[in-house]
């Protein structure tokens, strides 16, 4: 799994290298050119929000001497690769599920549960290992992206600034904060998906069903939430809260009125319920496998 992840990242770096124009030596000229193009386009269509925002950002760049961050640079690539955290989630769900349901499917659960150890401790150790595995993969993703980015595009200092627009105002954000949002907050999603996978695995005790169901709910859930976002109650759905990036940087809350605190409370409640169900079912149910 770690190998697959590394191959995907290096492949991504290669594709970026071939398809993205490298940052120009004179970025000012390029940005200036874009500004002029956007001005002309805006004269024809004054309502184009995207063009307006880009214009505002570019002007800010020129005024404050902040170069744009290209995907084909080391930190640009690292930031871009954070989208691959979904692979980390996928692999973690597979590992977490098979560590519980796989024992039932293979029959190894019997020799495991007749040891002088309480069942909840066995499950807890599996949960902890799964979370370490998730964190390890995330770290691997970051390190590989950092190395691949450095090797393909040249190493650079992380003292960079990204810009985004919030309520019409240009806001500066350090690269470190952006990276943190991309990778660190992914861990929140990973923790939730891991306990979710554990619950499904403990209930169904079948690897294939548990992996299939978790992955399906994970992708379907995210889409269904977008679809349901017109209703206010949708904010109580797990998948409306798992992506905390919506509260940072360019993100926007899925439903108006949702706050970081609200999402953290909702996630904590879901976690507690999932954990309780998982531990209850795993400890109490007869093993007939």
């Amino acid at each position: 799994m770690a190998g697959i992840l590394a191959v995907v990242i290096i492949g991504g770096a290669l594709i970026t290298l071939l398809n993205t124009e490298p940052p120009a030596d004179n970025w000012r000229a390029e940005v200036q050119q874009q500004v002029e193009g956007d001005r002309e386009a805006l004269a024809e269509d004054p309502e184009a929000v995207f063009l307006q925002e880009r214009l505002t950002l570019n002007n800010y760049r020129l005024d404050n001497d902040i170069a744009p961050i290209n995907d084909a640079t080391q930190w640009g690539f690292v930031d871009f690769v954070s989208i691959l955290t979904m692979f980390v989630t996928l692999f973690t769900v597979i590992a977490a599920t098979s560590s519980v349901a796989g024992e039932f499917t293979n029959g190894t659960i019997k020799l495991l549960l007749i040891r002088p150890v309480k069942r909840w401790m066995i499950l807890l150790s599996k949960l902890i290992v799964s979370l370490f595995y998730a964190a390890g993969l995330l770290l691997l993703l970051f390190v590989t992206a950092y190395l691949a980015g450095g090797l393909f595009f040249g190493f650079q200092s992380p003292q960079l600034t990204t810009l985004y627009i919030d309520n019409g105002q240009v806001v500066e954000q350090s690269m470190a904060a952006s990276i943190w949002a991309g990778y660190g907050l992914a861990m929140v999603n990973l923790v939730m998906m891991t306990i979710f996978a554990f619950m499904i695995a403990a209930i169904f005790r079948n690897s294939s069903i548990a992996i299939g169901l978790t992955i399906f709910l994970m992708f379907a859930g995210t889409n269904v939430v977008v679809f349901l976002s017109q209703y206010d109650w949708a904010k109580y759905i797990l998948f409306a809260n798992t992506d905390l990036r919506m509260y940072f940087g360019t993100g926007e809350p899925l439903i108006d009125g949702m706050t970081l605190g609200f999402s953290i409370v909702i996630l904590a409640i879901y976690f507690a319920v999932f954990a309780f169900l998982t531990f209850f079912v795993f400890s109490k149910r007869d093993v007939a496998a």
């Binding site: 293979n106 029959g107 190894t108 019997k110 020799l111 007749i114 040891r115 002088p116 150890v117």
Partner: peptide, 20 residues
């Protein structure tokens, strides 16, 4: 007293399935 009881017993249930 599950834990204490299990300290004194070893066994195989049906087939001895172990980690292949």
């Amino acid at each position: 007293q599950f834990v204490q009881a299990m300290e004194h017993v070893g066994g195989i249930v049906e087939n001895p399935e172990m980690y292949g």
